[in-house]
Design a binder for these strands. Structure first.
Length: 513
RNA sequence: CGGGGCGUGGCGCAGUUGGCUAGCGCACCAGCUUGGGGUGCUGGGGGUCGCCCGUUCAAAUCGGGUCGCCCCGACCA
């Protein structure tokens, strides 16, 4: 019974690392190759082909695997545990702000989806349909939910009667289907997991506050827990959610210079309340329509984690969300093994409160395990061998590459807990610095292209707000508008990059996933 | 949806001007050995060559189709 892993929110032990053997090569050629840089050759270089690197890290990191269905993936136990860790942290924030979870059906009758015109139009190219029950053709097609506004607002219309029923603050964790032409693990698959909040409010102001409150929660969660820096702000009209009045977004920048939309929060106005005929009787005894919001983040965030922090050794997961925060690796020689293992178990006890994996397997060497847990992105490794037992110490190895350190065993808990915070902060700081270096400003198309050429990333421009100018920017630069940051608006006029008219608007453009 | 690439034991690949029993590395099993950065040796088990249809005395190899995956561009969390 070698498993001593304690996984929060995980009811069983199926989340144990490496439940199935993998093909980690041990050929002499590869061993020789390893001596060059000490890196496992299972992972191609991040600076080489970025897409190949990404796929290899997801696969070798045991986050996911291709399913025998086009465009679909299996989230493996290790990857799913990561998702559960992420869920736990975000869910707590949502609960703390008064939201409650519920569950609505995956199947959505076509007639409901058709109620809101812009909504259908926006989603119809991506909807998967159920047309048969057994051999019998259905009288009405059922959509596999591409999002749940239609079915949830249908229910809200039944439940909301009085101003006393407001606000409605409901969230659901579920799966979503969107038919995609080209798929990538975690970044775009036919089916993915997310959380979607759907709220109703008494006033427009309250709905706007809610949309912004959620945006703030997303920023806090993604930056402080996932260590992924984002630009938060408003989407331009062209990038709005179908049916929304306003869409807010958090946009992350990946190391290859492409922006990744990482979460959205929509002010839906009264559009859905009208389409689904939601009314309530207000204090003044008149019937009114509530104001709505919806918002979500998806398993795509796992892709952001991989790309932001991974390196040539594989994954690197922030301590707060890592399925295993610490890997304890005994160095076994067949002689004092019992003493070494006893010390390792003592270490696990000392680290109570952290998610710890003790790997006492004897069919792999200690060195093999070092590489394995680095590939899995475990933030801190503790090595304990006979020499450490003798010296009453242990070797700590943070995944951030800052080197091995020998510590007194008595200081283990304090040292490791200190590393948890230090590594977490270091990851955010490093990512911030990278994104800062990938963000620039351009006053002309020539300048825009030059910057994009030098360092692809976020490029901020002045934009008058017209669709025509937006189209021209897209055309000239092959980038798309990502986000307008509120604090950067109306702080002095500059000529619109396309038409030259003075404007206070600023917007970031980037290539995107 | 266009352009390019790829489907051969679990994984990575070789073999492709048609021709012997389809080969190699890793993984797996057994034994010995080794062990602080992916131990070494020996011996084993495992494949109707993605699928279908053709051509042929003979197809992993040639032709047609089909399915899937990867990469690059147009649409999207």
């Amino acid at each position: 019974m070698p498993q001593t892993a304690r996984i929060a929110d995980s009811p069983d032990r199926s989340t144990a690392v490496n439940p199935h053997p993998l093909d980690y090569s041990r050929s002499r050629a590869r061993m020789a190759a390893m001596k060059d840089d000490g890196l496992v050759k299972e992972v191609p270089s991040k600076s080489g082909s970025f897409p190949d690197w990404y796929t290899a890290v997801v696969l070798k990191g045991e986050l996911a695997d291709y399913a025998p269905v086009r465009g679909c993936m299996v989230i493996r136990p290790y990857g799913y545990t990561l998702w559960e860790c992420m869920q736990g942290l975000l869910d707590a924030r949502l609960k703390a702000t008064g939201h409650v979870n519920a569950y609505f059906p995956t199947l959505i009758p076509e007639s409901l989806l058709n109620r809101e015109a812009e909504h259908v139009e926006g989603f119809s190219p991506q909807v998967a349909w159920v047309t048969h029950g057994g051999a019998k053709e259905l009288s009405e097609r059922l959509a596999l939910r591409p999002t749940s506004e239609a079915i949830i607002n249908t229910m809200y219309a039944r439940w909301v009667k009085s101003y006393r029923d407001l606000p409605v603050l409901v969230n659901q964790w579920c799966n979503i289907f969107r038919w995609e032409k080209a798929t990538r693990l975690f970044l775009r698959t036919l089916e993915f997991l997310w959380q979607e909040g759907h709220t109703l409010h008494r006033s427009e102001e309250e709905a706007e506050e809610e949309a912004l409150r959620i945006l703030d929660i997303y920023v806090d969660f993604v930056e402080n827990d996932l260590c992924v820096p984002v630009l938060a702000g408003l989407k331009p009209e062209s990038e709005k959610f179908p049916g929304a009045v306003r869409t807010y977004t958090i946009e992350a920048m990946m190391p290859d210079g492409q922006a990744l939309q990482s979460g959205t929060s929509h002010n839906l106005g009264q559009g859905f309340a009208e389409a689904f005929d939601i009314r309530y009787l207000d204090e003044d005894n008149t019937e009114k329509r509530p104001w709505g919001t919806s918002w979500g983040v998806t398993t795509r965030l796992i892709g952001a984690l991989v790309m932001t922090h991974g390196d040539d050794r594989g994954l690197f997961l922030p301590p707060r969300v890592a399925p295993f925060q610490v890997a304890v690796v005994p160095v076994l020689f067949g002689k004092q093994d019992e003493a070494v293992l006893a010390k390792c178990r003592e270490a696990v006890t000392a680290l109570a409160g952290l998610r710890v994996k003790l790997d006492a397997d004897t069919n792999q060497t200690a060195g093999w395990k070092y590489n394995q847990y680095e590939m899995l992105g475990v933030p801190v490794r503790v090595e304990i061998g006979p020499k450490d037992v003798q010296k009453e110490g242990a070797v700590l190895v943070p995944r951030d590459g800052s080197g091995k350190r020998f510590i007194r065993f008595a200081d283990l808990a304090q040292e490791v807990n200190g590393l948890m915070d230090g590594v977490q902060r270091g990851m955010l700081a490093a990512a911030r610095e990278r994104v800062r270096a990938m963000t620039s400003e351009a006053g002309s198309f020539d300048e825009f292209r030059a910057r994009l050429d030098a360092v692809p990333g976020f490029i901020r421009v002045a934009w008058c707000g017209s669709a025509q100018c937006e189209g021209q920017i897209i055309e000239e630069t092959k980038t798309t508008p990502r986000v307008m940051v509120p604090a950067e608006q109306d702080r002095g006029d500059a000529p619109c990059i396309a038409c030259g008219r003075p404007t206070g608007k600023r917007i970031y453009y980037a290539r995107t996933y």
